[in-house]
Simulated assay, not measured.
Amino acid sequence: MLAESTGERLPPPARRTTGHPELLEPQPCLRSRRPGAGPVPRPTAGPRRPSRPGAIQAIKEKVKAKTYRSTRHMSLAELIVGLNRLLRGWANYFRHAVAKDVFNAIDSFTWRRVANWIFCKHSLLSRQEMRRRFCRQSTWKIVHDGIELTGAASVKVTRYRYRGHNIATPSTPTPAAATPSG
């Protein structure tokens, strides 16, 4: 009619489902379970991360900056002291979160960066020689001049601390009011 006379194209008519009950029945689930088996197990979530966005990336960038090639003039002891301070402070901020696995991952990243820093500073060093000179005996913990790379995992994660005796109540007097002034 009007559309045909003006040359417009119309979309094809919508398909109709007519009277086929087998098409309307629910299909079986692909993950079928036997009756009475309980709920379908859900995949577990990964580790919780510190809640501040970009916190992990920020600490990694700071570790990269401290172990960059422009810092190879420093002694290993200076580098370890600086990294220990940085990582311990960051971990103390986030120690009330569920973050122990994140701390271990940051320590692993830091260890790799420091090991590469040592290899670049001492270019002819083998892995065995690096372990003999810069690691604690029979371990891979980096130690130099008695200073050990402790990292973030050395900070204890504390959650749900009991503070009942430290919180003042209205019935307990303050220490200044309890002692006579004289």
Rank of each mutant, 00 (worst) to 15 (best):
P53C: 04
L87C: 03
R42Q: 13
T172W: 12
L124W: 02
R31C: 12
K156P: 00
R52M: 11
T169C: 01
T139E: 04
T18D: 08
A55N: 00
K60L: 08
A58P: 03
L79F: 04
V81P: 00
R85M: 05
R136K: 15
Y160T: 05
Q27T: 10
A105Y: 02
P21C: 00
S108T: 09
H20T: 07
L86Y: 00
L23Q: 07
R9E: 12
G164A: 06
R15H: 11
A176M: 10
P11M: 02
S75R: 11
P41T: 12
P26Y: 04
R42F: 10
A37T: 14
T169Q: 09
P28N: 02
L86I: 02
T169D: 00
G82M: 07
P28E: 06
T150S: 07
A152F: 01
H96N: 10
P39S: 11
T17K: 14
L149T: 06
A176H: 11
G36P: 05
L76M: 12
G54Y: 02
Q137C: 07
A178P: 00
G54M: 02
G151W: 03
R16D: 05
Q137V: 14
V155N: 01
Y162V: 09
E129D: 14
D107W: 04
R159H: 03
F94W: 14
P43D: 09
S126T: 15
R88P: 01
K141Y: 13
I147Q: 04
G46L: 10
S32G: 12
W117Y: 11
P12I: 06
F94S: 11
K141A: 09
F119V: 01
I142H: 05
V81S: 03
R72K: 11
A91H: 09
R69F: 13
N84P: 01
D107E: 04
R42E: 14
N104Q: 15
R16Q: 13
T158V: 11
S51H: 08
N116S: 12
P173H: 05
P13V: 09
G182Q: 13
L30A: 13
R69I: 10
I118V: 13
T172R: 15
V98W: 07
R49Y: 13
E8N: 08
V98C: 08
Q137A: 14
R31P: 08
S126L: 03
Q57K: 12
D107H: 04
H96E: 06
V143N: 05
N104A: 13
R49E: 13
T110H: 07
S70G: 14
P173W: 05
N104E: 15
V143R: 09
V157G: 01
N116Q: 12
Y162D: 14
L2V: 12
A97M: 05
E78T: 13
E129Q: 15
K62W: 05
K66P: 03
I167K: 12
G19L: 11
